[in-house]
Amino acid sequence: MDIVNLFWVYAFSIIMLLVIGIYCMLATFNLMRALIGSEILIKAVTLFLIVAGYVTNQGALAQCLVITLIVVEVVMMTVAVGVVLGIHRYNKSLDVRKIRNLKG
């Protein structure tokens, strides 16, 4: 199997992961589930960076980028979970339809 066909097998599953994550973020009303959808999107991007580094023979650079991406991901998730906990403390709910206080 040559490297181009291998790249397209991987790209196929990356597109699948992106669609799953975007659908999860669009269809849910729960804030935690929206965070899980964004995690799946970030995993698709991680896989894409690693595959791009593999097919262009620049694996070291791709690994550095992925390590930075993982650090940013963890910080983003920690702050987002803190925001979710604060929303739950004041509204007693994680449903986004009940927290539209600034609407209008």
């Binding site: 991680t46 690693i50 580094g53 791709a62």
Partner: peptide, 10 residues
């Protein structure tokens, strides 16, 4: 895919 360091981070 030959990325063990990033894999361990993940």
């Amino acid at each position: 895919l030959n990325a063990p360091l990033a894999a361990m981070f993940e």
